[in-house]
Simulated assay, not measured.
Amino acid sequence: MKSIFYLCAALSVAMAQTAVAQSYPSKPIRMVVPFGAGSGTDQVARALAQAMGQADKITVVVENRPGGNGFIAAQDVANAKPDGYTMLLTTNSTHAAAEHLYKNVPYDPVKDFTPVALLRKGYLVMVTKPEFAATTVADFTEQAKKEPGRLNFGSGSSSSRVSAELYRQIAGVDLVHVPYKSNPNALNDLMGGLLQVMFVDTSSAVNLIKSGKLRGLAVSSQRRLDILPEVPTMQEAGVKGYEMSYWTAVYLPRNAPPDITAQLSRLLGKAMNSQELKQLTEKTGTEVAFGDGEVLSQFQASETEKWARIIKAAGIKPE
């Protein structure tokens, strides 16, 4: 009798979970972004929210929580109720690089989250003000070597910082790092003359380059990007062995129900195939790299090892 009771109880729980998943989502979903408005990640978040609303009548509220190296947003979601209504749209900054850059990360990027979906990959571009004397990477490197410790770079994400640190290591130059809450803030200071150089995601930089507000010196990809065909790769610019990319993914708090996780993954996959997202990836030089939670889990593990190697090779000490 006990075995029949436990079987019935298990079936009841399974049926209840299935019913919840079938009705999910039944209220607005909160999408937390660890970077500021206007950042590349923010652009994806808002395009996703729009696509999910149009296709499935789902209300997704984008909430930017920049600062604290992405810790504020990550902690927010890690501590949220795991019911599928609070998700983190983030990058390798919080979920592959942070534990190797900082001594006291207030969350576990694996244990505190449920992987939902890998969304896209992207690249960075080395930029300066158009008025800056150096017009090529070689020029910048030469000037930096003549003035060690005099030139600075800003970063508002781990990808931005580590890209610059990798260049600094390979080129053998001494640059001063200036941290920011988000890349848009750093870009404003770059255009204002407070910074000399930045490595920033193409999503944030392409329009500024095309409008003449910034000069693109080189891209971090292995081949030139269609949106910036005139900008050489770092390899072409003489920084041999240089290649960097970043990625965007979605997580729920730990212990999120598998049915809810799978349903959200399906909804995100559908949105990534929408015309809005296809147009966004085309105009920002990024690429769709969709995978479900299992794919994301395996990818995150390999990327964490990769970023650890890069950060260690660049000589960056955890702060």
Rank of each mutant, 00 (worst) to 15 (best):
F5Y: 08
C8H: 10
A9W: 05
A10M: 08
L11I: 11
V13Q: 06
Q17E: 15
Q22S: 09
Y24H: 06
S26K: 06
V33W: 03
V33Q: 05
P34R: 02
P34G: 03
Q43V: 06
D56C: 04
V60R: 00
N64K: 03
A78N: 02
D83W: 06
D83K: 02
G84K: 07
N92L: 01
K103M: 02
K103Y: 07
P106S: 08
P106G: 12
Y107F: 14
D108M: 06
F113A: 04
L119R: 01
F132W: 07
T135Q: 15
D139M: 01
A144I: 05
N152F: 00
S159L: 13
S160A: 13
V162Y: 00
Y167T: 01
R168Q: 15
Q169A: 12
A171Q: 10
H177N: 14
H177G: 03
V178W: 07
P184W: 06
G192L: 08
G192T: 12
L195N: 06
S203K: 04
N207F: 08
N207Q: 14
A218T: 12
L225Y: 07
D226L: 07
I227T: 08
I227N: 08
T233P: 04
G238M: 07
Y246L: 15
A249Q: 14
V250Q: 08
V250F: 02
V250Y: 00
A256G: 13
A256Q: 05
D259E: 15
D259A: 12
L264D: 07
R266H: 12
L267M: 14
M272S: 05
K278E: 12
L280N: 07
L280Q: 13
V288M: 13
E303K: 10
E303F: 01
T304V: 07
K312P: 02
I316M: 10
E319S: 11
